[in-house]
Design a protein around this nucleic acid. Structure first.
Lengths: 207, 207
DNA sequence: ACATTATTTACCTAATAGGTCAATAATAAT
DNA sequence: ATTATTATTGACCTATTAGGTAAATAATGT
C-alpha cells in the first residue's frame, strides 16, 4: 500500500518521514498539518499525497514503520545479559541518542500515538497495538542484578530514583539535540559527561 | 485595562483563567484557539471578548498576572533560611503541588511564554521580561549547605542528580494531577510517598 | 521523437480563525 | 409594573487553513 513511499530514495524518504514524525509528535494527529509536513520535507503537497494516500493511513503506516525501526535498531540491540544497572543504562541511553540522530522525533511520535485519543485513529490503533511499553521502566530494568546495592537501601525506590536521575540528564541532551544542528553535536563529549554522572551514581548507590 | 476581567466573581474569573492557561500552555500562542478557551470556560465567545479585549492583550495580561501569582504564592513562600537540600526540595515541591491544585497549568504557561518565538508576542514579551529563571535550578539550589554530603562525592553533580531524581517523581505526580480529578487526589498519601523517596535520597547522599 | 514518470500550479469545499453587532435575558431602580 | 441598565448570546463577517485532487508541465528514458 505504501510501496510508492518505500520505494523512494532514502534521502527523500527520510526527509518526509522526519518531517511527519516531528509534526505529528509535536501537534498530535488532529492538529498536525499535512501542509506543514510537505513544506518541511521540501516537496509540494500533491507530490506528498502521491506517496502517502491520505493523512490517516499515513499516520497508521508511520506507527507500524516506526515500531519496526525501533525493534530493529533499539530494542533488539539491547544486551539483556548485562545485569549491572549502570552499564545497562549507559547502553540504552547511548543507543537511544544514536537512534535519535537518525530519527529525532521517533520516540515522541510513538508516545503520542500510544497516548492519543483522537477519534479518527483511536480504534485503528487499538487493533494493531502490539505490546508497547508505556513506561519503558519495567521492561528494561526489571531483571537487573541488585546484589551490588548498598544493603540499607530500598531496592525498588533506588532503581526508580536512578532511572529518574538518568532521565533528567537524557532529557537535557535531547533538548540540545533538537535546538542545535545534530551534526555539530560533540558525541564524544556527551559520552564522557554521561559516564561522569553514571560514576557518581555508582558511588552513591553501590557498596 | 483588564478591570472588567479582574472585577469578575472569582469562580468565573478562575474558570476563564485556567481554560486559557491550559490552551495556551498546551498549544502555544499561535495555535491556541479563543473558541476553545471560551467553550472550556463555559461562556460564549462574545462574552469572553467582552472581558479580554483581544487574544494578544489577553496573553500578555496573563503573563503579568501569573508572574504575580507565582511571586506571591510560590517564590515568596520559600523559606530561604532552610539550607538542607532535602528539606528545601520537600518544601518547594509540596508548595508547587499546592499552587497547581489552584492553577494546574500556570507553570507550563510561564514556561511556554518564556520559550515561545511567536512573532506576534515575542517583542512585547522581551520588553516586559523580568528576570524569570528558566532552569529554576540555580536560583533555588545555589545556596544550600553541602557539608552533610558524603565526602567522596562531586557536589555539583550530586545536586544535579538529586534535582533530576526529584523532578522525575514530581513529573509523575503532575501527570496524575492532570488525568484524575484534582479534588479526589490523596494529598496525604503523596506526601508520605514523597518523604519516602526523599529519605532514600538522604540515605544515599548524606554521611 | 515519443512514451512515461515526476512534479507542480491552481483549484475545490468544508471548517475554523479572530472578532463584532444587534438582539435577547436578567437584574436593579423607580 | 415599568423602565433603565447590565449581562449574555445567536448570527454573522472576512480571512485563512484544512485535507485533497485534476490537469498541466518538466524531466527522464527509449
Amino acid at each position: 500500500m505504501f510501496s510508492k513511499f518505500l520505494g523512494l530514495e532514502p534521502k527523500r524518504r527520510n526527509a518526509i518521514l522526519n518531517a511527519a514524525l516531528r509534526e505529528f509528535a509535536s501537534k498530535g494527529f488532529d492538529d498536525a498539518s499535512t501542509n506543514v509536513i510537505a513544506k518541511e520535507a521540501g516537496i509540494s503537497k500533491p507530490l506528498m499525497f502521491h506517496y502517502i494516500n491520505n493523512k490517516k493511513d499515513f499516520f497508521l503506516f508511520l506507527y507500524d514503520y516506526c515500531l519496526d525501526i525501533l525493534n530493529r535498531e533499539y530494542f533488539d540491540q539491547i544486551d539483556v545479559r548485562e545485569k549491572d544497572i549502570f552499564e545497562r543504562l549507559r547502553q540504552t541511553c547511548l543507543l537511544k541518542i544514536q537512534v535519535m540522530q537518525k530519527y529525532p522525533w521517533i520516540f515522541d511520535f510513538i508516545k503520542i500515538a500510544v497516548l492519543t485519543d483522537s477519534d479518527v485513529i483511536k480504534d485503528e490503533l487499538k487493533k494493531r497495538r502490539k505490546m508497547v511499553e508505556t513506561s519503558s521502566f519495567e521492561r528494561f530494568y526489571g531483571d537487573i542484578d541488585t546484589s551490588y546495592f548498598r544493603s540499607e537501601l530500598d531496592i525498588e525506590k533506588a532503581k526508580q530514583l536512578i532511572f529518574w536521575a538518568v532521565s533528567g540528564y537524557a532529557g537535557q541532551i535531547v533538548d540540545k539535540l533538537r535546538s542545535s544542528d545534530i551534526s555539530e553535536l560533540n558525541f564524544e563529549k556527551i559520552r564522557t559527561e554521561f559516564d561522569g554522572y553514571l560514576n557518581e551514581l555508582r558511588k552513591t548507590y553501590y557498596k
